[in-house]
Amino acid sequence: MSEAIIICKDVHKWYGNFQALRGVSMEVDKGEVIVIFGPSGSGKSTFIRTLNRLEEHQRGTIFVDGIELTHDVRNIEKVRMETGMVFQQFNLFPHLTVIQNITLAPIWVRKWPKDKAEEVAMQLLERVGIPEQAQKYPGQLSGGQQQRVAIARALAMQPKIMLFDEPTSALDPEMIKEVLDVMVGLAKSGMTMLVVTHEMGFARAVANRMYFFDEGMIVESGTPDDIFNKPREERTKLFLSQILSQ
């Protein structure tokens, strides 16, 4: 028996008069790895950002781990404790060291003692492969190292769900692999992951299901095998042929 940890029904979102999401529905089970892809402006980032309320949806319902996302601030706080997010531009806190970046939320939100938070942070840095960088500032690290710190920072809150918003798009090619390796390891450990990415190798390797977004809607979804080998929609075929031919 699988259990749905994210349930979205008919989610709509407007920026002014521009409609970014037009009725997105999705269910994600615990431990699933979901890859979301599509052309820029298709609403895939907007969608993943509604899941921890960085964007507010205006119609439809979203449940994360049984908590409905509404204007209720307490619900938003709970959902944000359950979800970790990794951004395209890393968004590390430049005035804090690597270890302070990671321990900040556990200390202030989970109220852990500093020793415990630092111990967990060092374990996470081991896991992402850069324990020796703990005392440096983000500005002293490479892009790939920064993104791995960002993953460790998100994991430090022990979330049930990890959201990745184009985690490798701002990286140089030789650094993409080191970040993807960490993400593959995470996927294999059983973490529920939603990943907005165009890294089709990653999708093929670990995704349980893939969603193709265009113009604010889900055009097609299925297992990686379905999507890569027998896509039904013309738009999916066209988009895949464009990004795979690169």
Partner: peptide
């Protein structure tokens, strides 16, 4: 301060007061 800083702070669960004071 870039908006991404506030978003990252929200995403790890800090409340508005903590975001202002710490980030």
């Amino acid at each position: 301060i870039p908006q991404g800083q506030v978003e990252a702070a929200k995403a790890v669960g800090l409340n508005n007061f903590q975001i202002t004071a710490l980030i």
